[in-house]
Amino acid sequence: MSTTVAAPPAVRLESVTKTYGKGANAVRALRSVSVDIPRGSFTAVMGPSGSGKSTFLHCAAGLDHPTSGSVRLGDTELAGMSETALTKLRRTRVGFVFQSFNLVPALTVTENVTLPFRLAGQKADKEWTAEVLRRVGLEQRAGHRPSELSGGQQQRVAVARALVTRPEVVFGDEPTGALDTVTAKEILNLLRATVDAMGQTVVMVTHDPVAASYADTVLFLADGDIVEAMSSPTADKVAERMTHLGAWS
C-alpha cells in the first residue's frame, strides 16, 4: 500500500517573530506568526498602517531575517542561510513586483525582463521570454524603453520580469499602488491569470479592498498578529473587516 506525501506549501511561517531595536526602544513588528500559503494560490495581506504587512512580506520572501521562528520556501529553510545563498534563492526561486516599477531606463523591455538572468550570468530562454511577454500583452513593445511606455505597461514589464525565472512564488508589495483604477484592474487581472492559467503562487500586500478581492484568501494583520483569514473575499467584506481593525477609524 503506497502513501502519497502531500507537497509542502509554497511558503510556511512558523512562530515568526520580528523585533526591531533593543530594550525599551524595541518594536515587535511580528508576533509569533504561523501560516501556510498553498501552491497555486493568490493571497492578499492587509492591515492598518504599522500592522506588520511589509515585515511579513520581507520575512516570507527572504529579504529580512526573523528574530525567531521558521520561514520555509517549499522545503527550504531560510533561517541560517548566508546572504549570498539568500540572494541566489531570491534570484532563481522568487519573483518581486513593487509599487515603483524598478526598471532600468537604458534597457529595452526584453532586456529589463531578462535582467535576472544577466545578473546570474545565465542566458535567457528566448522562447519562454517571448511567451511571457505575450502573456502580459507586451509582445509588440519588446524593443521599447521604459520612457516610451505608460505606467501600466511599465508594471507589466515588472510582472514579466518576476515571472520569467519561473519562480515558486511572486511577492507583490502594493503593485497597483501607483496606478489609476482602470490600469490597476488590468494588472490585478494579469496576476489572477498567472495563478489560474500558470499555477503561479502570488502573495500581495495591499491597502485596497478592491485589489484584495482578486485573491483567494485575505490575511488580516493587526499589531503583528494574523487576526483573520478570509476566504472568497469581496471588496465590501474586506472593507468592512478593515473598518473593525481600525484601519480607517
Rank of each mutant, 00 (worst) to 15 (best):
Ser2Met: 08
Ala7Leu: 11
Lys18Glu: 04
Lys18Cys: 03
Gly23Phe: 08
Val33Asp: 00
Ser34Asn: 10
Thr43Ile: 15
Ala44Met: 12
Met46His: 12
Pro48Lys: 14
Phe56Tyr: 12
Phe56Gly: 05
Ala60Pro: 10
Gly62Cys: 08
Leu63Gln: 07
Pro66Lys: 04
Thr67Pro: 12
Gly69Val: 06
Ser70Thr: 15
Val71Cys: 05
Leu73His: 09
Arg91Asp: 07
Arg93Cys: 00
Val94Thr: 15
Phe98Met: 04
Leu103Pro: 14
Ala106Val: 15
Glu111Leu: 04
Leu115Phe: 11
Leu119Ser: 01
Lys123Phe: 00
Trp128Met: 00
Ala130Asp: 14
Leu133Asp: 00
Val136Pro: 09
Leu138Asp: 00
Glu139Pro: 01
Arg141Tyr: 08
Gly143Glu: 08
His144Tyr: 10
Pro146Asp: 05
Pro146Gly: 06
Leu149Pro: 04
Gly152Glu: 03
Gln154Leu: 03
Gln154Trp: 03
Arg156Asn: 02
Leu163Asp: 02
Val170Arg: 10
Gly172Met: 07
Glu174Ile: 03
Ala178His: 04
Ala178Thr: 10
Lys185His: 15
Lys185Tyr: 09
Glu186Arg: 14
Ile187Phe: 14
Ala197Asn: 12
Ala197His: 08
Gln200Val: 06
Thr201Arg: 09
Val205Phe: 04
His207Gly: 09
Asp208Tyr: 13
Asp208Lys: 12
Val210Lys: 09
Ala212Ile: 15
Phe220Glu: 13
Phe220Gln: 13
Leu221Tyr: 11
Asp223His: 10
Gly224Lys: 03
Val227Leu: 09
Ser232Glu: 15
Pro233His: 05
Thr234Cys: 01
Thr234Tyr: 05
Val238Trp: 10
Met242Gly: 04
Leu245Arg: 08
Trp248Asp: 06
